[in-house]
Design a protein around this nucleic acid. Structure first.
Lengths: 238, 238
DNA sequence: TCGCTCTAGTTAGAGGGTCTAACCAGATCT
DNA sequence: AGATCTGGTTAGACCCTCTAACTAGAGCGA
């Protein structure tokens, strides 16, 4: 891609370059010791700078953290979106498995980032509100797939609550409509929330290493969970 | 209970008292700002002491953290155990719901503790190995309930892996047998692992505040998840 | 009851962290 | 070419964890 000539003055280019290097080094630190191990001082030293120099690039430590989280959401959303695109036209059950696998692959490939999105990374850390929008982008592709099913049994109560939520919150309604225009919104939403919880359940435990030494591959559990969800929502296999 | 006269010399009693106060103050800090906000210095000041005094009670900050985590597991195990006891003799489906509710009630009542058990609380923090045993005590009661079901569909592959795991790991086999002596161990284990993942999925998201402003009570989602699991494992309702 | 011991507390301080203030040198823009 | 803007510096205030050395007093045996 050609650089945008407006924003790519030599200074700007250099600045972006250094910012990227800082983020990379920060990720390396987090990979080694979790979010609280991130030290601007240490990052600076790793880049051959002194500590305070980094404050020219990130006003505070939390800003750097926020940006890493933002990037994490974007990567997850991209992975999900790719999986949805590559299975366009496939039966919904197959697409659900593809999305789940994409989610798990992304999370286990960058477990520290996953924990970053999940935990309380810093003493007074407050997730910025735009986080909600980014989380929605990750889950979006699920809406289109699960909107092709229908709720039954215990999921009916859940769907009723989703309907209530949709009625009271236009942006949510708009979000669902944009990803699943032809589906019943409450059904798509109920299925997606359930899928979200199951994905987080399996992947969250795996990322924390709680399946270590269990001698079972979490992929099997995730597959079973999604298969069961597909059954419960009546998703056609072919 | 009468104190054990061997271990309750006046000094010992005083020491235990202060330790308890430290833990309480530490929990208060964590409640306010998450695990990384825990500062021995601040705790000490809160108790009217100087910083280094606390090192007479806890060798390092992580030791305090570990003890809090230990207590957390114990509280969770007690909650689960209580729920199991109070529903002894009830139909398994009902007991499953009772266990799930107990788990969620405990977790949402002390969300900071739940996050403590889940996250990476400290830069180089290493969970002690006994953690595994304590986690097993939490999940134990589920074994007895879910051992009364049977796997079908996609859960069969999961059960096969559980059987493999059981064969290779005698302590796990012993754990399952102690909680579900009459059941097929692999079935009980497959059901329990699935329940664990679903509990963590729902409760983990709730505890992180991700359901905030969703206008739906997570209890509904959890109920639906457990109901679905009971269906999938063929647990009788009455 | 006397005196030894043991301990909960103290202060001092090393070393590291975030972040601000003040300053400097050189690249950029007019 | 000169004014400006910026990426870098050092100094330092204020946190933190944790160690070392010391003190005052409580507990305990004779």
């Amino acid at each position: 891609m050609a650089d945008d000539s407006r924003t790519s003055s030599p200074r700007r280019r250099y600045r972006d370059q250094v910012r990227a290097e800082i983020k990379e080094a920060a990720l390396e630190q987090i990979r080694a010791g979790g979010a609280p191990a991130l030290s601007l001082n240490a990052v600076a030293k790793g880049l051959g700078l002194t500590g305070p120099a980094l404050y020219k690039y990130f006003r505070r430590r939390d800003d750097l953290l926020t940006e890493l989280i933002r990037d994490g959401y974007d990567a997850a959303a991209a992975a999900m979106s790719d999986a949805a695109d590559h299975t366009a036209g496939a039966p919904p059950r197959e697409r659900l498995h593809a999305l789940a696998t994409a989610f798990r692959t992304w999370a286990t490939g960058a477990p520290h980032v996953y924990q970053l999105l999940a935990g309380t990374p810093s003493p007074g850390y407050q997730a910025p509100p735009e986080t909600v929008a980014r989380a929605r982008a990750v889950l979006g592709p699920l809406l289109g797939v699960l909107g092709q099913g229908d709720c039954r049994g215990a999921a009916l109560a859940l769907r009723a609550e989703m309907r209530f939520w949709l009625n009271g919150s236009p942006p949510v309604e708009e979000w669902v409509r944009s990803w699943a225009p032809d589906a019943d919104a409450a059904t798509a939403l109920a299925g997606t929330v359930t899928a979200w919880a199951r994905l987080h359940g399996v992947v969250g435990l795996e990322v924390q290493g709680l399946f270590q030494g269990m001698g079972h591959r979490p992929g099997t559990l995730l597959h079973a969970e999604m298969e069961d969800l597909a059954d419960a929502m009546g998703l056609p296999a072919a």
